[in-house]
Deep mutational scan, measured.
Amino acid sequence: GKELVLALYDYQEKSPREVTMKKGDILTLLNSTNKDWWKVEVKATANDKTYERQGFVPAAYVKKL
């Protein structure tokens, strides 16, 4: 199945390749080969529509579930 990670801290994206997350968010882990930056998929809701974004977050800010 898919691997999930838990956001340990809030993170505000600093570039278009990154994604914003809030502490407590559960994210889908896409790639953890880089030890510093993990690629995740974030589900977000805006205007009653759910959309998914993929991007990088600092590996130290998340932990595998």
Rank of each mutant, 00 (worst) to 15 (best):
A44G: 12
V42M: 12
D10M: 02
A60L: 09
N31E: 14
N47Q: 10
G24N: 06
V57C: 03
P58L: 05
D36S: 10
E3C: 15
L27T: 01
L27A: 07
Q54C: 09
V62N: 00
Y11Q: 02
G1D: 12
L29K: 00
E18I: 03
K63D: 07
V62S: 00
M21C: 07
M21W: 01
S32F: 05
V42Y: 09
D48T: 08
D25G: 03
V19S: 02
K2L: 12
K63Q: 13
T45I: 13
S15N: 12
G1Q: 13
T33W: 09
V62M: 06
R17A: 10
A60Q: 12
L8A: 03
P58F: 05
P58D: 04
T33K: 11
L30C: 08
D25L: 04
T33E: 14
G55L: 05
L8R: 05
R53S: 06
L4Q: 10
D10V: 03
R17F: 12
T50H: 11
T50I: 13
K63F: 07
V40P: 01
F56A: 01
K63A: 09
K22G: 05
L29H: 00
N34H: 11
K64G: 05
T20N: 05
D10K: 02
N34R: 08
L8F: 02
V42D: 02
D36M: 10
K35L: 08
K2N: 10
T45C: 14
N47F: 12
D48Q: 09
V57A: 03
I26K: 04
G24T: 01
G55N: 01
Y61Q: 06
K14C: 13
L4P: 04
G24W: 05
G55P: 00
Q12W: 12
L30V: 10
V40D: 00
A44P: 08
N31P: 03
L30P: 00
K14N: 09
T33C: 15
K39M: 15
A46M: 14
P58N: 02
E3G: 10
Y11I: 00
K39D: 03
G1K: 13
E13R: 11
M21F: 09
L6T: 06
A59K: 05
T20E: 02
Q12L: 14
K2E: 09
K49M: 14
A44R: 12
V57E: 01
E52K: 14
S32K: 07
E41I: 13
E41P: 00
A7I: 02
V40K: 00
A59P: 05
Y9P: 01
G55K: 01
K35G: 08
K39T: 07
I26W: 04
V5H: 02
K22E: 05
A59I: 03
V57K: 00
K64Q: 08
K2Q: 11
L8G: 01
L8T: 04
E52P: 15
I26M: 05
M21Y: 01
K43W: 12
T28Y: 12
A7S: 05
K63H: 10
K14P: 03
A44V: 15
E52M: 15
T50G: 09
L4W: 12
A7W: 01
T33G: 08
A44D: 10
Y51C: 11
K14W: 04
T20Q: 04
E13D: 04
L6W: 06
T20D: 03
Q54N: 08
V40T: 00
K43P: 15
K23C: 08
K14V: 07
W37F: 05
P58M: 04
V62W: 01
R53V: 08
A60V: 08
N47S: 10
E52A: 15
D48Y: 08
K35C: 09
D25M: 12
E18T: 08
G55R: 02
D48P: 08
L4C: 13
Y51M: 10
T33P: 04
N34G: 09
Y61H: 08
N31S: 14
A44N: 13
L4Y: 15
V5D: 00
Y61S: 12
Y61I: 08
E41T: 09
V19H: 01
I26H: 04
D36P: 02
R17Q: 09
K23N: 04
R17N: 13
W37C: 05
L4T: 06
K39F: 15
L30Q: 03
K22H: 09
L30F: 03
I26A: 02
K2Y: 13
G55E: 00
G1C: 15
T33M: 12
Y61K: 07
K23V: 06
D48H: 09
L30K: 04
K23P: 03
V40C: 02
G55A: 03
A46F: 14
Y11G: 00
A44M: 15
R17W: 14
G24R: 01
A60T: 11
K64T: 08
A44E: 15
Y11N: 01
K43F: 12
S15T: 12
D10A: 06
W37G: 01
D36A: 09
V19I: 15
K49D: 09
K39E: 14
G1M: 13
V40R: 00
E41N: 07
L30T: 05
Y51W: 10
T33N: 12
K35N: 10
Q12Y: 14
E52I: 15
E18S: 05
A46S: 12
A7F: 03
L65M: 09
G55Q: 01
E52Y: 15
E13K: 13
D36R: 13
R53M: 07
Y61R: 06
N47C: 13
L4G: 03
W37A: 02
Y61E: 03
E3K: 07
T33D: 15
Q12T: 14
E52F: 15
N47G: 12
V5R: 01
E3A: 10
V57L: 02
G24E: 02
G55T: 01
A7L: 01
N47E: 11
K63V: 15
P58S: 03
K23T: 06
E13V: 05
D25T: 06
A60I: 08
R17H: 13
N31I: 07
Y11H: 04
K22A: 08
L6P: 00
L4N: 05
D48N: 13
I26E: 03
Q54I: 14
K35R: 12
V40L: 03
E3F: 12
K39N: 06
S15A: 08
A46C: 15
T45S: 12
Y61C: 15
V19E: 00
L65F: 08
Q54P: 04
Y9Q: 12
L65C: 14
S15L: 07
E3H: 12
E41Y: 07
K49N: 11
V42G: 11
A7T: 03
L8K: 04
T50Q: 12
Y51P: 10
V19P: 00
T20H: 04
F56W: 15
N47K: 09
W38T: 03
D25V: 03
A59H: 02
L6Y: 09
K22S: 08
G55D: 00
L27K: 00
E18L: 05
A46L: 15
P16D: 11
L29S: 00
S15G: 13
T28N: 07
A7G: 03
K35W: 06
K22L: 07
K49A: 11
L29G: 00
L4S: 07
A59D: 03
K64Y: 10
P16L: 08
D48E: 12
L6K: 08
Y11D: 00
D36N: 13
K35A: 13
R53L: 07
P16E: 11
A44W: 15
K14Y: 04
D10R: 02
E18V: 04
D10P: 05
A59Q: 04
K39I: 13
T50V: 14
Y51I: 12
R17Y: 13
N31D: 15
Y61V: 07
L30M: 06
L8P: 00
A60C: 15
W37I: 02
T45F: 12
E18F: 06
A44Y: 15
A46Q: 13
T45V: 13
G24K: 02
N31Q: 09
S32Y: 06
K39G: 04
T28M: 10
E52S: 14
V62H: 02
Y51S: 10
D36W: 15
D36T: 13
K35Q: 09
P58V: 03
L65R: 03
S32Q: 09
T33F: 10
V57G: 01
V19D: 01
V57N: 01
A60N: 14
L29A: 01
T28S: 09
E41R: 09
A59V: 05
L65D: 03
A44F: 15
P16I: 09
Q54L: 05
A59W: 01
K22N: 10
R53K: 12
R17S: 11
E41C: 14
W38Y: 06
N34A: 07
K49W: 09
E3Y: 11
G24L: 02
E3W: 10
N47W: 11
W37S: 02
T28K: 11
K22W: 08
L27N: 01
D48K: 09
Y51N: 09
T45W: 12
K39W: 15
S15I: 04
K35S: 11
K22V: 08
D25I: 03
E3Q: 13
V5M: 04
A59S: 12
I26D: 01
L27P: 01
V5Y: 07
N31K: 06
A60D: 11
A44L: 15
K63T: 13
L6M: 12
S15E: 07
L27G: 06
D10E: 04
D10Y: 04
